[in-house]
Amino acid sequence: MKKKYPFLEGAIPIEFISEIIQSHTHDNNIGGHSIFLGQVRADIIEEKEVEGIEFTSYQEMAIEKLIQIRKEIFTKYDLLCMHVHHSLGLVKKGGVCLFVFTSSKHRKPAILACDELVERIKKELPIWGKEIFSDSSYQWKENKQ
């Protein structure tokens, strides 16, 4: 697993997610966490099944924009911690491609911050997904809500 914050090559391993969650169990100030896992679906589009999504990004711009979003979210919500990781390269159906984790003293700020982070990542970060079909054809993915 090659990593260049916030990007990971390929699917985000469940062990990686588990380690991050486990590392926060010793912080006695945290009262709530919110977690979002984005997973590649095996959608059927025009009678073809999605086998995976190949993610690309303008990494420097995405990192700069994510730093800005993080600052704004930390200012808006009373958070103690935030993690954001997104896949690059091919993620096969069933694989996790986005991991967002927020922590706060109380559940509400963590939940609201996590939700806003996911929405802003989808709308503002220069990350693109190419859906790869079972017949090796592809199409660029549209972000939907």
Rank of each mutant, 00 (worst) to 15 (best):
K108C: 02
T75L: 13
I69N: 10
I17T: 08
G94K: 02
D135S: 01
C81D: 12
I132L: 13
Q22Y: 11
I30H: 03
R120Q: 11
V91A: 01
S23W: 10
K4H: 14
I69W: 10
E46N: 15
E46S: 15
G31I: 02
K76V: 01
C97F: 12
Y77G: 05
K144Y: 03
L8C: 13
S87Q: 06
V96N: 08
I69L: 15
S134R: 09
K105T: 02
W128Y: 12
L112T: 03
D78S: 15
P126I: 03
E15K: 14
I17D: 04
K123A: 15
E60Y: 07
K4G: 00
K108D: 11
I14F: 11
S87C: 05
I35E: 01
E131Y: 00
I12W: 09
T102C: 13
E49H: 03
I30D: 02
D27K: 13
S137M: 05
K92M: 01
M82W: 04
E19N: 15
L90S: 03
I111W: 06
R41N: 04
D78W: 01
H24G: 08
I44T: 15
L117Q: 03
Y77K: 05
Q59L: 09
L112S: 12
I121G: 02
E51R: 04
A110P: 02
K93E: 00
H83M: 04
C81T: 06
Q39W: 00
R120L: 12
M82R: 04
R41T: 06
G95R: 01
L66N: 09
I63P: 01
I111S: 09
C114V: 01
S104H: 06
C97T: 08
M61T: 12
G89N: 11
A110Y: 02
P13N: 14
K92R: 14
F74Y: 13
I20L: 13
Y77S: 05
V96A: 11
F133K: 01
I127R: 07
A11Q: 06
H86N: 10
E46M: 14
P126Q: 06
V118L: 12
H33Q: 05
R107L: 13
F101C: 00
Q39H: 03
A113T: 09
M82D: 04
I21V: 15
M82K: 01
H26L: 14
N28W: 10
L117G: 02
V118T: 10
F101W: 08
S18W: 08
A113F: 04
K108V: 11
R41I: 03
